[in-house]
Amino acid sequence: MVRDTIDRIGVVGAGTMGNGIAQVAATNGYDVVMRDIEEAFVENGFDSIEGSLERFDSKGHLDESPEAIVERIEGTTSLADLAGCDVVVEAALEEMDVKQDIFADLEEIVDEDVLLGTNTSTLSVTSIASATETPGRVVGLHFMNPVPIMEGVEIVVGEKSADAAVELAHDLAEDLGKTTWESDDKPGFVTNRILMPWINEGIRAYDEGVATKEDIDAGMELGTNVPMGPLTLADQIGLDICLHASETLHEELGDRYKPAYLLKRKVEAGELGKKTGKGFYEYD
């Protein structure tokens, strides 16, 4: 069903998640093809990778030079250039029609024994796979952000995901230095199903004046031993991404997942967190 030997990994999307996946794969010795729809997006992806690798290198965390790692990554705007890959991981926009179009195109490009993974954080793997004639080779490979730093990868099993494909997904993630856990194809999977209500409740508590944003974050950090509180984490993730995930879960699971009003207001104001310089906190 899926091939055993993996030498070349394709990544669809050169944004935050895509370039992170490409970096980790290349760092672990794989040849990588990183594709996005515009050359500027590909170049931005390489800029992010090079900056990240330089930081790792300055701390002595690399076994070889950043240049040697980058040389293993090929950038492209053509999906057809992924034809020779042994695995393809899609990390495009979190929109069902976009992902289905990509998977339908990939099926025409790559060999039938190539594992197709999606980095979706909330959308149904089964629905994404339905755009193909071979849904058995489609699995969720949900990397955490930032990919080069976060240890975990969530393996999501679609309705028709074959056992061999799921096993290969676990093996690949572990070969990339990650630790995996497995989730059924239910809305939000394990992480976002639990994380998004936690973030939203932190936002509501702040909006309702329960405490300052600093005290809400401090209370959760010191009281529950998490590394950062809900408002800081929301800024790190991106408030637009949190809103999109919450809206998807609200649609699927009802009012307990309804996004906080202040979250919507922040996104409408363009205050998306660390990436825009301001969210619940301000950043340089």
Results as ranks from 00 to 15, higher is better:
E221N: 04
A165K: 02
M1T: 12
G10A: 08
S246D: 04
C242L: 05
I21P: 03
E174C: 14
E64M: 13
E43W: 00
N44K: 15
Y261K: 13
N200C: 12
E251I: 08
D86Y: 12
G117I: 02
A164L: 00
S78N: 12
G219S: 08
R193S: 12
A40C: 04
V12F: 09
V42H: 01
P66D: 01
I37A: 11
E64Y: 08
V226G: 02
N119M: 05
E39D: 10
E107N: 09
E201I: 11
T224K: 03
L222R: 08
L231I: 07
P135N: 06
T179P: 07
I149Y: 04
I155S: 07
E71S: 09
L172G: 04
P146F: 02
F41P: 00
N119K: 02
M1I: 06
D31T: 05
K160E: 15
I149G: 01
E90S: 06
G188L: 07
V24Q: 05
E90Q: 03
D7L: 08
Y261F: 11
A14Y: 09
T77S: 09
T126S: 15
D175Q: 06
I49G: 14
K59G: 01
M17E: 07
D63V: 01
D63A: 11
D97W: 02
A260L: 11
N192Q: 10
F46W: 06
L239E: 13
M17I: 13
L272A: 05
V125W: 06
A25W: 07
G75F: 01
D235E: 13
E50I: 08
D255V: 04
V24M: 13
F143R: 02
P230C: 11
D86R: 03
E112H: 12
L263K: 04
I9C: 01
D113A: 07
D111A: 15
E43D: 13
V2K: 08
G117F: 02
P259S: 01
G238W: 11
L106M: 05
A129N: 12
C85L: 02
G202D: 01
L176G: 14
M34W: 01
E50R: 11
F46Y: 10
G279I: 08
P259A: 07
L262A: 15
G238V: 11
T134Q: 11
T118S: 15
I241N: 14
L93C: 06
N44L: 09
A92G: 13
L263W: 14
F46K: 04
L195A: 08
R204V: 12
T134G: 00
G273L: 11
F56T: 04
V190D: 03
C242A: 14
G15Y: 03
M144A: 10
G51R: 11
A260G: 07
A40S: 14
G209M: 01
T126R: 02
H142T: 00
